[in-house]
């Protein structure tokens, strides 16, 4: 009798990640106009912001409505470290990420003991506080007008728009690879276990508190990276980075793209950035339309657009497992 082998469930490949990155790398060659490149940079910025939120809420099930605060903190820290302390951009990047990590750790330690509603409201309060301080501490943050972010320089010269685009793409690529790696590894499965049942996850040896804290810090750092991307594209940081509309965009992207999916944040960002360009007279209705989109997707398509695509692959995986089960059954009958 030949040795029975059960087919392993098809592991998701890393290929789509490289497809997305390749498309991203080709964009400046195809689109000449600076306007479109700016839009593409915005897509990557939002994608990075939302990947952090996707890990935290979509996978680990911990909600933080304070992501815009970390987004703006990252951008402010990056600008301030260069202006006030005269650090070089690379060092300021590391410094600001470390700063945001420490802040989120300090906030996460007490807050992660809270659950669901409490966690959501507490983090929302944190966002409002951060926004209030950015608006009112005028001596340090410049109030409404914000602070200028020094332009990126290479060998003493300011780099052009394409150069900035590739810098943003590089940062986004790191986050995308990390996001994908985490989801496909045992860490991702641990996070999903926490989302579905904390007690069961603990019983299976997942260190729940540690995982939650790590994911919170990681997602805050990702939000900070997004903030820095925004800073180097627009060359200005102001309190509007942590205002309500950022949270609205964030939720729209994640829910439309698909919560807890691998590529939902990217697909969602493309739509949310492109939508205002396609629809004329969108500006006045923007918030209402986004709200309606969130609602419709929550009710009718809880896995979002990415879920539609991934379900196709899921169906193939399901068929493979069904196949395996049938063979197991056959095997059992042969033995008995």
């Amino acid at each position: 009798m030949s040795k029975p082998t059960l087919p392993a469930a098809p592991t998701p490949t890393i290929l789509p990640v490289f497809v997305f990155l390749a498309i991203g790398a080709l964009i400046p060659l195809v689109l000449e106009s600076g306007f479109y490149i700016r839009l593409a940079m915005l897509v990557w910025t939002y994608a990075v912001l939302c990947m952090g939120f996707n890990l935290l809420y979509g996978f680990a099930g911990q909600i933080s409505l304070g992501q815009p605060a970390f987004y703006s903190l990252g951008a402010y820290a990056y600008a301030m470290l260069q202006i006030k302390l005269g650090w070089s951009p690379a060092v300021a990047l590391g410094g600001s990420l470390a700063f945001v990590a420490v802040v989120s750790l300090l906030i996460g330690l007490p807050l992660l003991r809270l659950r669901t509603h409490y966690l959501a409201m507490a983090t929302l309060a944190f966002m409002l506080v951060e926004n209030g301080v950015a608006n009112r501490w005028i001596d340090f943050t410049g109030g409404q007008s914000g602070v200028e972010v020094p332009a990126l320089k290479w060998a003493g010269e300011e780099i052009g728009r394409t150069g900035i685009y590739y810098t943003v793409l590089g940062l986004a690529a790191v986050v995308l690879l990390l996001h994908d790696f985490l989801i496909r590894s045992h860490l991702g499965r641990g996070m999903q276990a926490i989302r579905d049942d904390e007690t069961a996850a603990q019983a299976l040896g997942v260190r729940v508190d540690l995982y939650k804290l790590r994911v919170l810090v990681l997602s805050s750092v990702m939000a900070a990276i997004a903030g820095i991307c925004f800073g180097i594209t627009s060359l200005r940081v102001d309190p509007s980075l942590s205002e309500f509309h950022v949270l609205v965009s964030l939720l729209t992207i994640v829910v439309m793209g698909g919560l807890g999916t691998r590529f939902g944040p990217i697909i969602g960002s493309v739509i949310v950035v492109a939508l205002p360009q396609v629809l004329t007279g969108f500006g006045r209705f923007e918030t209402a339309i986004y709200g309606a989109c969130i609602l419709v997707f929550l009710i009718f398509l809880p896995h979002g657009l990415s879920g539609l695509v991934e379900r196709k692959f899921q169906w193939r995986a399901d068929r493979a497992t069904a196949d395996a089960k049938r063979r197991k059954q056959v095997l059992k009958e042969e033995v008995s």
Partner: peptide, 11 residues
């Protein structure tokens, strides 16, 4: 969902 409701009312 209720947050989406708040967003719609605000919008």
């Amino acid at each position: 969902g209720t947050l989406a409701g708040a967003i719609i009312l605000y919008g």
